[in-house]
Design a protein around this nucleic acid. Structure first.
Length: 272
DNA sequence: AGTGCGACCCGAACGC
DNA sequence: TGCGTTCGGGTCGCAC
């Protein structure tokens, strides 16, 4: 499940491999991934080239001439670079072929990912981009910002941390880890959260995301020469997916509950 | 407006 | 070569 650190690693990896190569063909094998008109999507890409790859929240933004291609990996989206003559395998849904006979292939087991094309001048008008709040590593993401955003909110803190309009880029995994590092129970209500709690949350979010991105080289492995990148960070998690295992701080057993329909892991003793 | 929940998917895990 | 059911997870769209 790519979260912000994984998306950043994909961005950096792809930048080394696909920039300034002319696109000669686009195959769409599963159309619902594409939110734009399919013919327009192909027409804009063919003959074009990727000039840069940017990122806003969990959105990858491929820069073209006059347009951007937005791509969200959702749960299981991955990019592979392969030679064009290699067989197309199951779950490869979008194939972008360059004139040097290499492909950028979008692979998505769950078919949850989305792509769309926008005119450059419309990028910040698109709802996907407009809805992104401050990123964990943004210096203007402060405890005061969070405290202000909490006011009037009633949902549990876990759900609030998943709201991309408040903090952009935290997913289910890092939300659990941030709450654990902050000593805050996932069901705590925003009205009960102090400035001091906000400071802990912001500090933890920055540390956890920074560490995840910095460790991209070791936590992200390439397991074949053709694969883009895949997350392999489970060894670093303190509570997430660790139900029944001892809490790394106090040894109590990690609990699992549902919060907002999402699996949530925490330590009853350390998180109040 | 804010909140909650079903839908979208399909492989893995689970139940029998 | 077991088969049918349940679950999960980011985001959107709809209902309240």
């Amino acid at each position: 499940m790519p979260e912000i650190a994984e998306v950043e690693t994909v961005r950096n990896t792809l930048k080394k491999r696909i920039l300034n190569k002319k696109i000669k063909d686009v195959k769409i094998l599963y159309a619902k991934i594409i939110e734009s008109d399919l013919e327009e999507f192909k027409q804009i890409l063919i003959g074009n080239e990727f000039k840069d790859i940017l990122r806003v929240g969990k959105w990858l933004i491929f820069e073209l001439k006059d347009y951007y291609l937005l791509s969200h990996l959702r749960m299981e989206g991955k990019y592979f670079i392969k030679n064009s003559d290699e067989e197309i395998v199951k779950h490869e849904h979008i194939i972008i072929t360059f004139t040097d006979n290499t492909d950028l292939r979008y692979h998505d087991t769950r078919k949850f990912g989305r792509m769309k094309i926008v005119k450059k001048e419309d990028l910040y008008k698109t709802k996907e981009i407009q809805k992104q709040g401050k990123e964990p590593l943004d210096k203007t993401l402060t405890s005061d910002y969070l405290l202000e955003k909490l006011s009037g909110k009633k949902m549990p803190m876990k759900t609030l941390l998943l709201d991309q309009e408040i903090i952009s880029g935290l997913g289910n995994i890092y939300a659990d880890e941030v709450l654990f590092a902050s000593g805050i129970h996932p069901l705590r209500k925003p009205s009960d959260i102090t400035k001091n709690d906000c400071e802990k949350i912001i500090k933890s979010a920055k540390e956890i995301i920074e560490s995840a991105i910095l460790n991209g080289g070791t936590t992200i492995k390439s397991y074949t020469s053709s694969l883009g990148v895949i997350g392999n960070y489970q060894n670093f998690l303190k509570v997430h997916k660790r139900e029944g295992l001892p809490c790394p701080k106090c040894g109590a057993l990690i609990k699992r509950i549902k919060v907002g329909g999402r699996s949530t892991y925490f330590c009853e003793k350390c998180q109040k």
